[in-house]
Amino acid sequence: MIRALLRLLLASLYAIAGVLHIVAPRPFLSIMPGGLPYPEAIVLLTGVAELIGAIALAQGWSSTLQRAGAIGLALYAVCVFPANINHFALDMARPDNGLGLAYHIPRMFAQPIIVWWALWAGGVTDWPFRRRHN
């Protein structure tokens, strides 16, 4: 029951983020590391990826599809981590420190938790809750 609720919560958060990437891309464009080609297309496609992953994770008729969505969202969280680091560096370089350390430090620590959450909620792993069989 808890896993299902947390799976739906994570899927909802990713769906909201996906919609925001598509309808309001400017904040995402502003934190994208420089040198990447076609930043507008990247932000749009990341929004689409979040929506597809959220739908796959949330649906209840196929555990295979849920696991695929979970793996996709976990990989997505790993792939966007450089943008989070870039946002941190950009903010800390501002005279007012932007959103500050109170925002960025927890966000850095949250990223691996989000990766685990996707994998656990999607049934890819039971760690650390599974019992050892001796």
Rank of each mutant, 00 (worst) to 15 (best):
residue 42 I to W: 06
residue 43 V to F: 11
residue 43 V to D: 11
residue 43 V to Q: 12
residue 43 V to Y: 11
residue 44 L to I: 04
residue 44 L to A: 13
residue 45 L to S: 12
residue 45 L to D: 08
residue 46 T to R: 06
residue 46 T to E: 07
residue 47 G to S: 09
residue 47 G to D: 05
residue 47 G to W: 02
residue 48 V to D: 15
residue 50 E to I: 02
residue 50 E to W: 04
residue 51 L to F: 13
residue 51 L to P: 13
residue 51 L to M: 15
residue 53 G to Y: 00
residue 54 A to K: 03
residue 55 I to Q: 02
residue 55 I to A: 15
residue 56 A to E: 01
residue 56 A to F: 11
residue 57 L to G: 03
residue 59 Q to K: 08
residue 60 G to P: 06
residue 61 W to K: 10
residue 62 S to Q: 00
residue 62 S to T: 02
residue 64 T to E: 02
residue 65 L to S: 12
residue 66 Q to L: 04
residue 69 G to T: 13
residue 69 G to H: 13
residue 69 G to P: 14
residue 69 G to F: 10
residue 70 A to N: 04
residue 72 G to Y: 02
residue 73 L to C: 10
residue 73 L to G: 09
residue 75 L to M: 14
residue 76 Y to T: 05
residue 78 V to T: 08
residue 84 N to M: 12
residue 84 N to P: 09
residue 85 I to F: 14
residue 85 I to W: 14
residue 92 M to G: 01
residue 96 D to M: 05
residue 96 D to Q: 06
residue 97 N to P: 00
residue 97 N to V: 01
residue 99 L to R: 10
residue 99 L to S: 09
residue 100 G to F: 06
residue 102 A to R: 09
residue 103 Y to M: 15
residue 105 I to W: 04
residue 106 P to R: 01
residue 107 R to A: 06
residue 108 M to Q: 14
residue 110 A to F: 08
residue 112 P to K: 04
residue 112 P to H: 06
residue 113 I to G: 15
residue 113 I to M: 15
residue 114 I to Q: 01
residue 114 I to S: 00
residue 115 V to G: 04
residue 116 W to C: 11
residue 117 W to L: 15
residue 118 A to G: 05
residue 119 L to M: 05
residue 119 L to C: 07
residue 120 W to K: 01
residue 123 G to I: 01
residue 124 V to E: 03
residue 125 T to Q: 01
residue 126 D to M: 02
residue 127 W to C: 05
residue 127 W to L: 11
residue 128 P to I: 11
residue 129 F to T: 12
residue 129 F to I: 12
